[in-house]
Design a protein around this nucleic acid. Structure first.
Length: 673
DNA sequence: TTAGGGTTAG
């Protein structure tokens, strides 16, 4: 049961300022705030409160002083280094001492550049010049301390200054500061106090408070804040709406974020970006591409932030054509030097099969970040070129870049896929010993995969048993996969039982186990797995594949004979199947020839239908069939389905369960994927 | 007309 607590006084009472107090009722459960009900705000509620400026400050000499105006302009344009340089010159010149007009801009520059020592020095200058009672200076000081991760100093200043307790802006700065420093409960408490003393909250208060909702457990609170904001019209502020949208994404409710997005009468670039990034981070790649196309059709030019989200989704979908278009868009725009965009381009090219292009982008980058290295190392790993990945990793360390957990996942996975067992084990040890990085589940699953692929199944099992964290389905799944490769039924049974405890709905594991029993001619085993599947009402999904056509990705399923062109299609498919068998034969007798043919592309054609395809080595122990050209007169829908039937039997087609069903009556496609 | 806030990569 949730206990209801009145956080602050009764509405009928008045406080020291003479204004009626505004109680906030919080619902607490197990000492955690789970919801809020806000009391009504008086009708004379103001969205923004103007602060009276002290007379001493408004003298013309202060605001028209050329030093001050120049400093203001530099800080406003984001030239913080130059602004601080100018401030120091002003001190050295001795011609005019800094005034209350000078400090906010200098403090803002320190905060933006994270210069806590300079900020403290500025604080002492403020005290020396007697400007600490200026509201703007005081707020800027509080904000500076918060941004410099010294929220205790900000609080001390706030508590020691009677002025701060009467100013909405000071509360706003400190609330935002608490949120920024992960002190969400402190932020809420201060918000309650602010209302208790009768101060008006405004949209900026909300901008400081809402980003504190960072996970599903804050969802309830976030929604009550949303209700409050709507009630008092704060949602008309674009920034507040953007903030709420991001809050929903972070709390895991992408649907509510989309509802808000659709309801917003006006959308800014940040609105589009927040929605696109929200979709991209949650794996809704198709929706990202849809929004991107919508932006284009509305004539809105996406900025680098949107393009990063689009590229990341192209990488996930393997949507090479859209990715290429974005790349060209980037080259012809002024965003060419954006590091985020370059990193996303490396990732997109690597994952869409163009490793050479990924490498040239990487090589041309004048400044490479840890993410740039991770992307290119991951790219080589993905394509089975572990040696180059290792070479790059070592080079990265030599350049003085400190690795993090993510780059270790890339290199361990690269070692695993290239069979570089010793190297991988070395890096795993190095990770903790030299860099103090604790191995997480992802690292352990790479290591189990690495040992398992090398046939060291007992060691892989031992590693799982020694893990300091509870192994998850991915870790046990890696062991199960390795048992399949090496035909170890006994250990496979153990891994299978563990993995289905984590993912009982994952049909793949049952199929894998059943196939192992079939290979071992253990009919009883096969029967047991089938019974389990039946009991759990699990049915094998029909095989499916997907294509990118006209910039959209479509899913298609197998099996259908209703089409008028069926006969012709099946003749083609027979020939296609013959070709695949022929290639199979080469695999044993002349593997080089097989690879050569596949890399160059092979195909069959008739008068109305044509298909050619090649292979892409993913380095993940599987090959992806790339349909290079498909020329069809008439409706190709069924033909694609049928091709996929042949294809699925021979090749692993990338997981396509997340994408839309095939709808287009496409008649000519080039360069599938 | 100076303070407080929202969106990006592996």
């Amino acid at each position: 049961m949730a206990e209801e607590t009145t956080a602050e006084g009764d509405e009928s009472t008045t406080n020291a300022t003479g204004k009626p107090s505004s109680p906030v009722v919080g619902f607490f459960y197990q000492q955690k705030i789970i919801g809020f009900v806000f009391s009504p705000i008086p009708s004379n509620f103001h969205r923004r409160e103007r602060v009276g400026t002290p007379k001493s400050y408004t003298n013309a000499a202060s605001s028209t002083n050329p030093w001050n105006t120049q400093l203001r302009d530099l800080a406003k344009q984001g030239h913080y280094h130059q602004a601080l340089h100018l401030y120091r010159s002003l001190l050295r010149s001795g011609s005019s001492p800094p005034t209350a007009f000078t400090f906010p801009f200098a403090l803002k520059s320190c905060a933006a550049l994270y210069l806590p020592l300079s900020g403290q020095q500025l604080h002492s200058h403020v005290v020396k010049t007697g400007c600490q009672s200026d509201p703007f200076v005081l707020t800027a000081l509080i904000s500076m301390y918060c941004k410099c991760r010294s929220v205790e100093n900000a609080r001390k200043l706030f508590d020691e200054s009677p002025l701060s307790r009467t100013l909405t802006v000071c509360y706003n700065a400190l609330i935002a500061g608490y949120t920024y420093n992960s002190g969400f409960l402190d932020a809420i408490t201060l918000f309650c106090r602010m209302r208790e003393v009768g101060l008006w909250v405004n949209d900026v208060t909300m901008l400081g408070l809402v980003p504190g909702c960072t996970g599903p457990m804050h969802m309830c609170f976030g929604m009550s804040v949303h209700g409050f904001i709507v009630k008092y019209g704060l949602d008309t502020d674009l920034a507040v709406a953007n903030c709420l949208l991001t809050m929903y994404v972070r709390c895991g409710s992408i649907e509510l974020a989309r509802n808000l997005f659709d309801d917003m009468p006006e959308k800014g670039m940040i609105t589009w970006n927040a929605m696109i990034s929200g979709y991209a981070q949650n794996g809704f790649a198709t929706q990202v591409l849809e929004l991107y196309h919508e932006m284009e059709s509305l004539g809105i030019c996406p900025d680098p932030v949107a393009l990063v989200g689009v590229l990341s989704s192209c990488a996930n979908l393997g949507a090479r054509k859209v990715g290429l278009k974005v790349e060209q868009q980037t080259e012809s725009s002024r965003f060419g030097f954006n590091v985020f965009l370059k990193n996303a381009l490396i990732n997109m090219n690597a994952r869409c099969g163009n490793l050479a292009r990924a490498r040239s982008i990487f090589d041309e980058m004048p400044e490479k970040t840890l993410v740039s290295w991770t992307a290119i190392i991951g790219g080589y790993g993905m394509h089975g070129q572990g040696e180059i990945a290792v070479e790059l990793f070592d080079k990265m360390i030599k350049t003085g870049i400190k690795p993090d957990g993510a780059v270790f996942v890339s290199i361990l996975s690269a070692c695993s896929h290239a069979g570089l067992t010793g190297k991988g084990l070395g890096y795993f040890t190095l990770m903790e010993r030299n860099y103090g990085l604790q191995a997480g589940l992802e690292h352990y699953s790479c290591m189990v995969d690495l040992l398992g692929r090398a046939g060291r199944l007992a060691e892989a099992h031992g590693l799982i048993e020694s893990m300091p964290v509870e192994p998850d389905g991915v870790v046990w799944g890696a062991l199960l996969g390795a048992c399949k490769i090496h035909g170890n039924i006994e250990l496979a049974e153990l891994a299978f039982n563990r993995v289905i405890a984590f993912e009982p709905w994952n049909i793949g594991f049952y199929v894998l186990m059943s196939n192992m029993y079939t290979e071992a001619k253990d009919t009883e085993g096969v029967r047991r797995v089938r019974v389990m599947m039946r009991e759990r009402k699990l049915k094998k999904d029909p095989g499916c594949s997907y294509v990118e056509y006209k910039g959209r990705t479509h899913l298609f399923m197998v099996g259908d004979r209703s089409h008028p062109q069926t006969e012709e299609m099946y003749r083609m498919l027979d020939r296609l199947e013959g070709l695949v068998k022929e290639l199979d034969g080469y695999e044993k007798t002349d593997p080089e020839r097989r690879n050569e043919e596949l890399v160059n592309g092979v195909g069959v054609h008739s008068e109305r239908l044509a298909i050619s395809f090649g292979l892409l080595n993913t380095g993940l122990g599987m090959e992806i069939l790339v349909i290079k050209n498909l020329r069809i007169c008439g409706d190709c829908h069924l033909f694609i389905k049928l091709v996929s039937k042949v294809v699925d039997r021979r090749f692993v087609v990338r997981d396509a369960t997340r994408f839309h069903h095939f709808k287009d009556g496409a008649c000519s496609c080039n360069d599938f994927w």
